[in-house]
Design a binder for these strands. Structure first.
Lengths: 248, 248
DNA sequence: CCGGTTCTTTGATCCATATCAAGCAATGGC
DNA sequence: GCCATTGCTTGATATGGATCAAAGAACCGG
């Protein structure tokens, strides 16, 4: 790893008494998040402005239209971002896991709501102080830009999915995405943990609960996946799933 | 205007013999694009690396999967960005007009294809030299980030549209977006110019050509819009259109 | 461990939009 | 200015997924 990690390097345990300002040093998702742009020293500055918080399932973290005072980094658990129409129709625009960030705003207000699906731990960075940091650490600015670019690319994939894929193709794509993202977090690619319910999956894929359920059953019956206990799904035939996801 | 423009200020015409390196100085969309971050002096550096090009309708500017060597800025005309599935199903992820930029990449290759719809003029910035500039001019980095953030927000709006809106709501949203974007370019908000065909609109909204056509007819019959010559549509009842777009 | 709540699955039916099929209108090359 | 091509509209029919309905299955608080 190119980032220096003195405490790991000399095999000492970080001592909380010596490092009271380093909650970030031990962060399990640092290498995935905005913070990966900073070395151990620069992390000090970040640690000074960060507020760590936990949220319970169904708790709203911020709502669409709220004044966008903070940027957030998910460090554990699953969060969903969504937008609503006046009559309650909902589109989930993304599921966030450890290492993902959220809170980009346009015109000073959040463009979507964020709600915890599982118990969630989150780092909150006051936007103003964060912007100051971005000026001081261009590396961080780049990192944020690169993460936004990635988000944009996956938003475009999602448009293709929503606009042009069938229910089966949507579900296959979704499961494979969960698998790929699990790998990025250092988790096994199989079986995958699916912490969100059928209704949430539906609102993410532009389907109803019932169609999600039926389509899961189809893939199960075709022996492409297997449902396990504890919100887990085993991918039995990944190649078949990939073919379906690409519309082959 | 806060950006200094010496030649405008003293009422002299820019002399091409004296200003051969200032194609950007006279750019009609400068205030909308990446370049807005730069003052007249800094623009010199940009002008040095820029390559201006024109493209004819149906011409591909770059293709999904191509090595992402450049960033682009549309200065005139209409461009579409799209992704394809193996069997030819297409999702248009965006229409670009003067001032819009494109070419963000992930993993070194373009994530979508870009094709001219009308005759188009484009500024092309070699990525490598552009990145150098971003380091030298943090303002520009910020500008790019802010533009990417806006793109992300409208991508999320589009997900809501694709996943949860009806054909009528989709079309109403589309027409209003065209109108709002025309205003940003200093054009009248009404009537709007709709340079793309029904098939392209369909592939943008997740509908077929026929459904787009039928839905346009519906709005026309309801006297909410009127079709004019030259790919123009007049919005007759904007409030009704807005209500439809929001699902009211 | 029990009863209530919530989530998931399955079934029957419906409908918005896709698909298939022409006819019609605009556009462009010669 | 005419024909060929392409794009747009309209009509008839089909269908994937929505909706309505209800029976399991998992979960949870006491």
């Amino acid at each position: 790893m190119s980032v220096s990690r003195p405490f790991a390097a000399d095999n000492r345990q970080p001592d909380p008494a010596v490092q009271p300002m380093h909650p970030c040093g031990a962060c399990p998702v640092r290498s995935l998040s905005i913070c990966a742009a900073l070395d151990y020293h620069e992390l000090d500055h970040l640690a000074e402005i960060v507020i760590a918080k936990n949220h319970q399932p169904h708790q709203t973290i911020f709502a669409e239209g709220d004044e966008a005072t903070d940027l957030f980094n998910v460090t554990g658990g699953t969060v969903m971002l969504y937008k609503l129409l006046a009559d309650g129709r909902r589109q989930i625009t993304g599921f966030l896991f450890g290492g993902d960030f959220m809170g980009l705003s346009v015109g000073g207000v959040y463009a979507y709501s964020a709600e915890a699906i599982t118990p969630v731990s989150i780092c909150r960075f006051p936007r103003k102080r964060m912007e100051q940091m971005l000026d001081d650490f261009p590396k961080m600015q780049r990192r944020l830009f690169s993460m936004a670019s990635n988000e944009l690319a996956s938003a475009q994939d999602q448009m293709l999915l929503l606009g042009r894929k069938t229910a089966k193709e949507k579900l296959a794509s979704f499961l494979l995405n969960l698998s790929r993202r699990a790998v990025r977090r250092g988790q096994p690619d199989n079986p995958i943990t699916v912490p969100m319910g059928r209704a949430d999956i539906g609102d993410y894929l532009g389907l109803t609960t019932e169609t999600v359920s039926r389509t899961v059953t189809q893939l199960k019956t075709a022996s492409i996946i297997r449902l396990l206990d504890g919100h887990k799904i085993q991918i039995v035939d990944r190649e078949a799933l990939e073919d379906i996801a690409e519309g082959l």
